[in-house]
């Protein structure tokens, strides 16, 4: 059983600047921020390393961080753009009984995170869901399609983004009440 501090040290020694920081000061679960372009390698290490043995991915969630940057153009009208999306990986080790949360932050403009489907099969559907709901694209995912919403749903519309607007119609059916 290892604390999140120890896990952070191990990861930092192994991956260096791919591991950004350990966030411990807010309740309840501390998390480790990593870069989105190396999640697969980190996941493989967390899974295989005999000190860590994270054999189960409890949940993978896509989150819109809702931190757009306010910009003013020449005429003075304000517009919001940019911001980040995050993927949270909640990991648990059944043999060693310890937990850790990993967070990968990516740009909202072109959200791209490496898939961990090859490490934990649980990630397959969870990544599809994160793509469906928040619009994060997962590199090397075998079948990244919509899972909950219909396949012909508007391609650029992701319901759990904070700036989402409910559509009016779907296939001729009125959606608002």
């Amino acid at each position: 059983m290892k604390s999140s501090k120890e896990i952070f040290e191990i990861l930092k020694a192994e991956f260096g600047d791919k591991i950004l920081e350990l966030k411990e000061d807010i309740p309840v679960d501390p998390y480790i921020i990593v870069t989105p372009d190396s999640t697969e390698k980190i996941a493989r290490f967390l899974h295989d390393s005999s000190d860590l043995q994270f054999d189960s991915l409890m949940v993978l969630s896509g989150v819109d961080d809702n931190n757009p940057v306010k910009t003013k153009d020449e005429e003075g009208t304000e517009s919001l753009s940019g911001g980040t999306l995050s993927v949270y990986y909640h990991l648990y080790s059944i043999p060693l009984n310890h937990k850790i949360v990993i967070r990968a932050v990516t740009e909202k403009e072109n959200p791209m995170v490496q898939s961990v489907e090859s490490v934990w099969k649980t990630a397959d559907w969870h990544e599809r869901e994160a793509f469906d709901m928040v619009g994060i694209r997962f590199e090397n995912h075998p079948d990244l399609t919509r899972i909950l919403l219909p396949y012909d749903w508007d391609e650029s519309s992701f319901p759990l983004r904070k700036d989402y607007k409910n559509p009016e119609f779907y296939q001729g059916m009125k959606i608002p009440y």
Partner: peptide, 9 residues
């Protein structure tokens, strides 16, 4: 609740 995140199962 305070600012933070939690996973309960």
């Amino acid at each position: 609740p305070p600012v933070g995140s939690v996973y309960g199962r």
